[in-house]
Design a protein around this nucleic acid. Structure first.
Lengths: 160, 160
DNA sequence: CGGGATGTTCAATAAGGACTGAACGATTTG
DNA sequence: CAAATCGTTCAGTCCTTATTGAACATCCCG
Protein backbone atom coordinates (compact mmCIF):
# COMPACT_ATOMS: atom_id res chain seq x y z
CA UNK A 1 0.00 0.00 0.00
CA UNK A 2 3.01 2.24 0.38
CA UNK A 3 5.34 2.95 -2.48
CA UNK A 4 9.13 2.89 -2.15
CA UNK A 5 9.07 6.63 -2.71
CA UNK A 6 6.72 7.17 0.21
CA UNK A 7 8.73 4.80 2.35
CA UNK A 8 11.93 6.61 1.58
CA UNK A 9 10.52 10.05 2.23
CA UNK A 10 9.00 8.90 5.49
CA UNK A 11 12.27 7.28 6.52
CA UNK A 12 14.18 10.44 5.71
CA UNK A 13 11.80 12.39 7.88
CA UNK A 14 12.31 10.03 10.79
CA UNK A 15 16.04 10.09 10.28
CA UNK A 16 16.08 13.87 10.34
CA UNK A 17 14.16 13.81 13.59
CA UNK A 18 16.52 11.29 15.12
CA UNK A 19 19.31 13.74 14.35
CA UNK A 20 17.38 16.42 16.17
CA UNK A 21 16.24 18.34 13.11
CA UNK A 22 12.82 19.16 11.68
CA UNK A 23 11.03 16.21 10.21
CA UNK A 24 9.96 18.18 7.18
CA UNK A 25 13.51 19.06 6.22
CA UNK A 26 14.30 15.37 5.97
CA UNK A 27 11.19 14.73 3.93
CA UNK A 28 12.06 17.48 1.49
CA UNK A 29 15.55 16.10 1.07
CA UNK A 30 14.14 12.64 0.48
CA UNK A 31 11.73 14.01 -2.09
CA UNK A 32 14.49 15.84 -3.93
CA UNK A 33 16.73 12.78 -3.94
CA UNK A 34 13.99 10.62 -5.40
CA UNK A 35 13.07 13.18 -8.03
CA UNK A 36 16.67 13.75 -9.03
CA UNK A 37 15.85 17.06 -10.63
CA UNK A 38 14.99 20.53 -9.39
CA UNK A 39 11.60 20.89 -7.79
CA UNK A 40 9.74 24.03 -6.81
CA UNK A 41 8.28 24.94 -3.43
CA UNK A 42 4.81 24.48 -4.90
CA UNK A 43 5.67 20.95 -5.93
CA UNK A 44 6.93 20.21 -2.44
CA UNK A 45 3.79 21.47 -0.75
CA UNK A 46 1.76 19.36 -3.16
CA UNK A 47 3.83 16.19 -2.86
CA UNK A 48 4.43 16.32 0.89
CA UNK A 49 1.16 17.91 2.02
CA UNK A 50 2.93 20.67 3.88
CA UNK A 51 2.39 24.40 4.14
CA UNK A 52 4.07 26.93 1.93
CA UNK A 53 5.82 28.34 4.98
CA UNK A 54 7.32 25.02 5.96
CA UNK A 55 8.50 24.32 2.44
CA UNK A 56 10.21 27.68 2.21
CA UNK A 57 11.79 27.60 5.65
CA UNK A 58 13.03 24.04 5.50
CA UNK A 59 14.28 24.21 1.94
CA UNK A 60 16.44 27.16 2.92
CA UNK A 61 17.57 25.28 6.00
CA UNK A 62 18.77 22.47 3.77
CA UNK A 63 20.67 24.94 1.65
CA UNK A 64 22.28 26.29 4.79
CA UNK A 65 23.24 22.80 5.88
CA UNK A 66 24.74 22.15 2.47
CA UNK A 67 22.52 19.26 1.40
CA UNK A 68 20.61 21.11 -1.27
CA UNK A 69 21.16 23.93 -3.68
CA UNK A 70 18.84 26.49 -5.11
CA UNK A 71 18.67 26.72 -8.85
CA UNK A 72 17.16 29.56 -10.80
CA UNK A 73 16.75 28.69 -14.42
CA UNK A 74 16.29 31.69 -16.67
CA UNK A 75 12.75 32.26 -17.77
CA UNK A 76 11.45 30.52 -14.70
CA UNK A 77 9.50 32.44 -12.14
CA UNK A 78 9.61 29.93 -9.36
CA UNK A 79 12.71 29.10 -7.40
CA UNK A 80 13.65 25.48 -7.48
CA UNK A 81 15.78 23.29 -5.26
CA UNK A 82 17.90 20.30 -6.10
CA UNK A 83 19.64 17.72 -3.95
CA UNK A 84 23.41 17.71 -4.18
CA UNK A 85 25.18 14.57 -5.32
CA UNK A 86 26.24 13.71 -1.79
CA UNK A 87 23.69 15.50 0.31
CA UNK A 88 25.10 14.48 3.65
CA UNK A 89 28.73 15.19 3.09
CA UNK A 90 28.30 18.64 4.54
CA UNK A 91 26.33 17.19 7.42
CA UNK A 92 29.23 14.96 8.38
CA UNK A 93 31.54 17.94 8.09
CA UNK A 94 29.35 19.88 10.46
CA UNK A 95 29.45 16.96 12.84
CA UNK A 96 33.24 17.13 12.89
CA UNK A 97 33.15 20.87 13.43
CA UNK A 98 30.90 20.42 16.41
CA UNK A 99 33.29 17.94 17.95
CA UNK A 100 36.15 20.36 17.45
CA UNK A 101 34.25 23.24 18.99
CA UNK A 102 33.48 21.17 22.04
CA UNK A 103 37.06 20.01 22.26
CA UNK A 104 38.37 23.56 22.17
CA UNK A 105 35.97 24.73 24.85
CA UNK A 106 36.88 21.82 27.10
CA UNK A 107 40.59 22.33 26.62
CA UNK A 108 40.26 25.95 27.54
CA UNK A 109 38.32 25.08 30.65
CA UNK A 110 40.79 22.39 31.66
CA UNK A 111 43.57 24.97 31.67
CA UNK A 112 41.70 26.82 34.40
CA UNK A 113 41.92 24.04 36.96
CA UNK A 114 44.45 24.88 39.66
CA UNK A 115 47.21 22.54 40.73
CA UNK A 116 45.10 21.45 43.65
CA UNK A 117 42.74 19.81 41.17
CA UNK A 118 45.34 18.29 38.89
CA UNK A 119 43.37 15.07 38.69
CA UNK A 120 40.25 16.78 37.44
CA UNK A 121 42.30 18.86 35.04
CA UNK A 122 43.84 15.72 33.63
CA UNK A 123 40.48 14.01 33.18
CA UNK A 124 38.88 17.02 31.54
CA UNK A 125 41.88 17.45 29.33
CA UNK A 126 41.73 13.83 28.25
CA UNK A 127 38.06 14.23 27.55
CA UNK A 128 38.82 17.21 25.35
CA UNK A 129 41.58 15.37 23.51
CA UNK A 130 39.24 12.53 22.82
CA UNK A 131 36.87 14.90 21.09
CA UNK A 132 39.57 16.65 19.17
CA UNK A 133 40.94 13.39 17.86
CA UNK A 134 37.48 12.36 16.82
CA UNK A 135 37.08 15.67 15.04
CA UNK A 136 40.36 15.10 13.23
CA UNK A 137 39.23 11.67 12.26
CA UNK A 138 35.95 12.90 10.86
CA UNK A 139 37.79 15.59 8.91
CA UNK A 140 40.01 12.96 7.36
CA UNK A 141 36.97 10.95 6.46
CA UNK A 142 35.14 13.82 4.78
CA UNK A 143 38.38 14.54 2.95
CA UNK A 144 38.37 11.04 1.58
CA UNK A 145 34.68 11.16 0.78
CA UNK A 146 35.17 14.35 -1.15
CA UNK A 147 37.82 12.65 -3.25
CA UNK A 148 35.58 9.70 -3.97
CA UNK A 149 32.94 12.17 -4.98
CA UNK A 150 35.54 13.14 -7.54
CA UNK A 151 33.63 14.33 -10.55
CA UNK A 152 30.79 15.68 -8.44
CA UNK A 153 33.08 17.54 -6.04
CA UNK A 154 32.17 20.85 -7.56
CA UNK A 155 30.19 21.72 -4.46
CA UNK A 156 33.04 21.71 -2.02
CA UNK A 157 32.82 24.98 -0.18
CA UNK A 158 30.27 27.25 -1.73
CA UNK A 159 27.82 27.78 1.09
CA UNK A 160 28.02 29.53 4.44
CA UNK B 1 32.86 34.07 39.88
CA UNK B 2 32.61 30.77 38.10
CA UNK B 3 34.98 27.97 38.85
CA UNK B 4 36.42 25.69 36.19
CA UNK B 5 34.31 22.93 37.66
CA UNK B 6 31.13 24.92 37.19
CA UNK B 7 32.18 25.93 33.72
CA UNK B 8 32.86 22.38 32.74
CA UNK B 9 29.60 21.05 34.10
CA UNK B 10 27.68 23.81 32.42
CA UNK B 11 29.48 23.17 29.14
CA UNK B 12 28.75 19.46 29.39
CA UNK B 13 25.09 20.26 29.85
CA UNK B 14 25.04 22.47 26.79
CA UNK B 15 26.91 19.88 24.82
CA UNK B 16 24.42 17.21 25.77
CA UNK B 17 21.60 19.45 24.63
CA UNK B 18 23.32 20.18 21.33
CA UNK B 19 23.38 16.44 20.76
CA UNK B 20 19.68 16.31 21.40
CA UNK B 21 19.85 14.78 24.86
CA UNK B 22 18.75 15.95 28.31
CA UNK B 23 20.84 18.76 29.70
CA UNK B 24 20.98 17.15 33.12
CA UNK B 25 22.52 13.96 31.79
CA UNK B 26 25.41 15.98 30.46
CA UNK B 27 25.79 17.82 33.74
CA UNK B 28 25.88 14.60 35.70
CA UNK B 29 28.53 13.20 33.42
CA UNK B 30 30.56 16.37 33.80
CA UNK B 31 30.23 16.19 37.55
CA UNK B 32 31.37 12.58 37.65
CA UNK B 33 34.33 13.30 35.40
CA UNK B 34 35.48 16.15 37.59
CA UNK B 35 35.07 14.16 40.76
CA UNK B 36 36.85 11.15 39.37
CA UNK B 37 35.32 8.85 41.95
CA UNK B 38 31.91 7.32 42.57
CA UNK B 39 29.21 9.73 43.64
CA UNK B 40 25.75 9.01 44.96
CA UNK B 41 22.43 10.30 43.71
CA UNK B 42 22.15 12.43 46.83
CA UNK B 43 25.48 14.05 46.07
CA UNK B 44 24.33 14.80 42.55
CA UNK B 45 21.11 16.43 43.68
CA UNK B 46 23.13 18.53 46.11
CA UNK B 47 25.91 19.51 43.73
CA UNK B 48 23.75 20.13 40.68
CA UNK B 49 20.61 21.45 42.36
CA UNK B 50 18.39 18.94 40.65
CA UNK B 51 15.56 16.74 41.82
CA UNK B 52 16.01 13.22 43.03
CA UNK B 53 13.91 12.01 40.11
CA UNK B 54 16.14 13.68 37.54
CA UNK B 55 19.29 12.34 39.14
CA UNK B 56 17.95 8.81 39.15
CA UNK B 57 16.54 8.90 35.63
CA UNK B 58 19.51 10.55 33.99
CA UNK B 59 22.13 8.55 35.82
CA UNK B 60 20.52 5.38 34.56
CA UNK B 61 20.32 6.90 31.10
CA UNK B 62 24.06 7.45 31.19
CA UNK B 63 24.57 3.84 32.18
CA UNK B 64 22.41 2.81 29.26
CA UNK B 65 24.45 4.96 26.91
CA UNK B 66 27.62 3.43 28.25
CA UNK B 67 29.24 6.58 29.65
CA UNK B 68 28.89 5.70 33.30
CA UNK B 69 28.75 2.64 35.46
CA UNK B 70 26.96 1.88 38.65
CA UNK B 71 29.06 0.72 41.55
CA UNK B 72 27.80 -0.90 44.71
CA UNK B 73 30.45 -1.07 47.37
CA UNK B 74 29.68 -3.56 50.10
CA UNK B 75 28.40 -2.02 53.28
CA UNK B 76 27.08 0.95 51.38
CA UNK B 77 23.37 1.62 51.23
CA UNK B 78 23.39 4.16 48.50
CA UNK B 79 24.03 3.35 44.88
CA UNK B 80 26.88 5.27 43.37
CA UNK B 81 27.87 6.09 39.84
CA UNK B 82 31.25 6.60 38.29
CA UNK B 83 32.34 7.93 34.91
CA UNK B 84 34.12 5.45 32.69
CA UNK B 85 37.64 6.20 31.54
CA UNK B 86 36.46 7.18 28.09
CA UNK B 87 32.89 8.16 28.68
CA UNK B 88 32.08 8.97 25.10
CA UNK B 89 33.55 5.96 23.40
CA UNK B 90 30.20 4.24 23.57
CA UNK B 91 28.50 7.38 22.33
CA UNK B 92 30.59 7.34 19.17
CA UNK B 93 29.84 3.67 18.77
CA UNK B 94 26.15 4.41 19.00
CA UNK B 95 26.61 7.08 16.38
CA UNK B 96 28.09 4.52 14.02
CA UNK B 97 25.29 2.09 14.78
CA UNK B 98 22.74 4.72 13.91
CA UNK B 99 24.40 5.34 10.58
CA UNK B 100 24.36 1.64 9.86
CA UNK B 101 20.72 1.27 10.81
CA UNK B 102 19.78 4.09 8.51
CA UNK B 103 21.92 2.64 5.75
CA UNK B 104 20.25 -0.74 6.04
CA UNK B 105 16.78 0.74 5.98
CA UNK B 106 17.60 2.83 2.93
CA UNK B 107 19.16 -0.08 1.09
CA UNK B 108 16.10 -2.19 1.72
CA UNK B 109 13.86 0.56 0.45
CA UNK B 110 16.00 1.13 -2.62
CA UNK B 111 15.51 -2.50 -3.61
CA UNK B 112 11.80 -1.85 -3.85
CA UNK B 113 12.04 0.70 -6.64
CA UNK B 114 10.86 -0.80 -9.94
CA UNK B 115 12.85 -0.66 -13.13
CA UNK B 116 10.80 2.31 -14.23
CA UNK B 117 12.44 4.31 -11.44
CA UNK B 118 15.96 3.04 -11.90
CA UNK B 119 17.33 6.57 -11.46
CA UNK B 120 15.70 7.03 -8.10
CA UNK B 121 16.75 3.56 -7.04
CA UNK B 122 20.33 4.39 -7.93
CA UNK B 123 20.30 7.66 -6.00
CA UNK B 124 18.71 6.13 -2.93
CA UNK B 125 21.14 3.27 -3.10
CA UNK B 126 24.09 5.62 -3.29
CA UNK B 127 22.71 7.55 -0.36
CA UNK B 128 22.52 4.32 1.62
CA UNK B 129 26.06 3.33 0.66
CA UNK B 130 27.35 6.67 1.79
CA UNK B 131 25.91 6.05 5.22
CA UNK B 132 27.14 2.50 5.41
CA UNK B 133 30.67 3.52 4.51
CA UNK B 134 30.55 6.22 7.14
CA UNK B 135 29.34 3.64 9.65
CA UNK B 136 32.26 1.38 8.72
CA UNK B 137 34.69 4.19 9.17
CA UNK B 138 33.33 5.13 12.54
CA UNK B 139 33.57 1.50 13.60
CA UNK B 140 37.21 1.47 12.61
CA UNK B 141 37.72 4.60 14.63
CA UNK B 142 36.09 3.25 17.77
CA UNK B 143 38.19 0.16 17.29
CA UNK B 144 41.29 2.28 17.43
CA UNK B 145 39.98 4.31 20.34
CA UNK B 146 39.26 1.15 22.26
CA UNK B 147 42.91 0.20 21.93
CA UNK B 148 43.99 3.49 23.40
CA UNK B 149 41.43 3.02 26.15
CA UNK B 150 42.90 -0.36 26.87
CA UNK B 151 46.36 1.10 27.18
CA UNK B 152 45.20 3.90 29.40
CA UNK B 153 43.27 1.50 31.57
CA UNK B 154 46.29 -0.70 32.16
CA UNK B 155 48.47 2.05 33.52
CA UNK B 156 45.82 2.80 36.05
CA UNK B 157 45.45 0.42 38.92
CA UNK B 158 41.71 0.10 39.24
CA UNK B 159 40.08 -2.82 37.52
CA UNK B 160 36.61 -4.13 37.48
C1' DC C 1 -0.97 51.26 -12.57
C1' DG C 2 -3.72 46.80 -11.19
C1' DG C 3 -3.76 41.65 -10.81
C1' DG C 4 -1.80 37.53 -9.99
C1' DA C 5 1.79 34.58 -8.73
C1' DT C 6 5.59 33.58 -5.56
C1' DG C 7 8.63 33.67 -1.44
C1' DT C 8 9.35 35.28 3.26
C1' DT C 9 8.10 36.69 7.87
C1' DC C 10 5.47 36.53 11.99
C1' DA C 11 2.16 35.48 15.59
C1' DA C 12 -0.43 31.69 17.23
C1' DT C 13 -1.04 26.85 17.91
C1' DA C 14 0.28 22.14 18.54
C1' DA C 15 3.29 18.65 19.90
C1' DG C 16 7.05 16.67 22.29
C1' DG C 17 10.13 16.19 25.92
C1' DA C 18 12.53 17.71 30.17
C1' DC C 19 12.01 18.35 34.81
C1' DT C 20 9.78 18.14 39.22
C1' DG C 21 7.01 16.94 43.44
C1' DA C 22 4.69 13.49 45.45
C1' DA C 23 3.43 8.87 46.02
C1' DC C 24 5.03 4.29 46.18
C1' DG C 25 7.80 0.11 47.16
C1' DA C 26 11.73 -1.88 48.92
C1' DT C 27 15.36 -2.25 52.14
C1' DT C 28 17.73 -1.25 56.27
C1' DT C 29 18.28 0.15 61.05
C1' DG C 30 17.12 0.36 65.85
C1' DC D 1 7.67 -4.00 64.31
C1' DA D 2 8.30 1.02 63.61
C1' DA D 3 10.96 4.51 61.60
C1' DA D 4 14.02 6.04 58.45
C1' DT D 5 16.49 5.90 54.15
C1' DC D 6 16.75 5.28 49.34
C1' DG D 7 15.52 4.54 44.43
C1' DT D 8 11.91 4.40 41.02
C1' DT D 9 7.62 5.67 38.91
C1' DC D 10 4.12 8.71 37.43
C1' DA D 11 1.03 12.59 36.69
C1' DG D 12 1.43 17.36 36.01
C1' DT D 13 3.83 21.58 34.66
C1' DC D 14 6.83 24.12 32.02
C1' DC D 15 9.55 25.15 28.09
C1' DT D 16 11.26 24.58 23.65
C1' DT D 17 10.46 23.98 18.91
C1' DA D 18 8.05 22.45 14.74
C1' DT D 19 4.30 23.70 11.94
C1' DT D 20 0.83 26.49 10.15
C1' DG D 21 -2.28 30.32 8.42
C1' DA D 22 -2.24 34.84 7.35
C1' DA D 23 -0.20 39.16 6.45
C1' DC D 24 3.38 41.22 3.86
C1' DA D 25 6.78 42.24 0.19
C1' DT D 26 8.34 41.51 -4.37
C1' DC D 27 8.25 40.67 -8.96
C1' DC D 28 6.13 39.92 -13.44
C1' DC D 29 2.85 40.45 -16.99
C1' DG D 30 -1.23 42.75 -19.15
Amino acid sequence: MTSPTEDFIEQMGLMAQSEGGPRIAGQILGYLIVEGEPRTLAQMTEALKISKASASTNARLLVLKGSVRRVSPVGQRQDAYEALDFPNLAVIRALGDRFRDHADKMTEISAGFPESHAGARERVSRFADFHRKTADFIDAWTEKLAEDAGLAATDREDTR
